[in-house]
Write a protein that binds this DNA or RNA. Sequence first.
DNA 1: GCGACAG
DNA 2: ATCTTGTCGC
Length: 241
Amino acid sequence: MANYRVLHSWDVSPEEAIKIQNEMRNLVKIENLQSQIRYIAGADISFDKGSNTVYAGIVVLKFPELVEVDRSLLITEVNFPYIPGLLSFRESPALIKAWEKIKIIPDVVIIDGQGIAHPRRFGIASHFGVLIDKPTIGCAKSLLVGMYKEPDEKAGSYSYLYDSGEIIGVALRTRDNVQPVFVSIGHKITLDESIEIIMQSIRGYRIPEPTRQAHMLVNALRRGEIKPGTRTKPEQDSLFS
DNA sequence: GCGACAG
DNA sequence: ATCTTGTCGC
């Protein structure tokens, strides 16, 4: 269920989208997590080359084990183009649809993109977070705005991301000698908690597991290797049971 | 006007 | 994001 108090139309022009961001930016809450993390989710989208068809998915993992417990995969259409700074208006509609089918509601969601490390401090992670009224973390593979010093090459080290004199996120090295990822507050969380959770979600790869799993699933869906749906294949722990 | 620019 | 093989480095 989305946060009906702030629902708005997705059928808007780029100009209207910017106006919505400037109004909704004030709804972002920066606070400590209000509950322990038992489940964490990753959300992502996949596209075909020149098609309007999008493959969306959200994967819920038990935390900190990071074992899948639920998933929501669906195929739909998009019209809004990719415009730097307006990514949310292209990807959120599909992600919201996927969110509404999730059975196990996660305590925090990692989004593939920026949170407040955005020109108007309202990237997709913040927008999505406000809409679902849940804690979210923005974890992008590349920079949108801001300046930073290269963090030390050791996993776990980070440096602050600045824009207009304010700290908007961090460049975090998730593994030794790999390009850093850009972590920022999405909604209802602090930057320190975001960094901590991202590092606790790393399992041998640069990208945190929730996002990586979601990315693999939506790509498998696009290639037709798996079908849309919401059930997670139960583990065959025992031949009995 | 020029350059930058999440996915 | 997507189109794509091999290749360099830990």
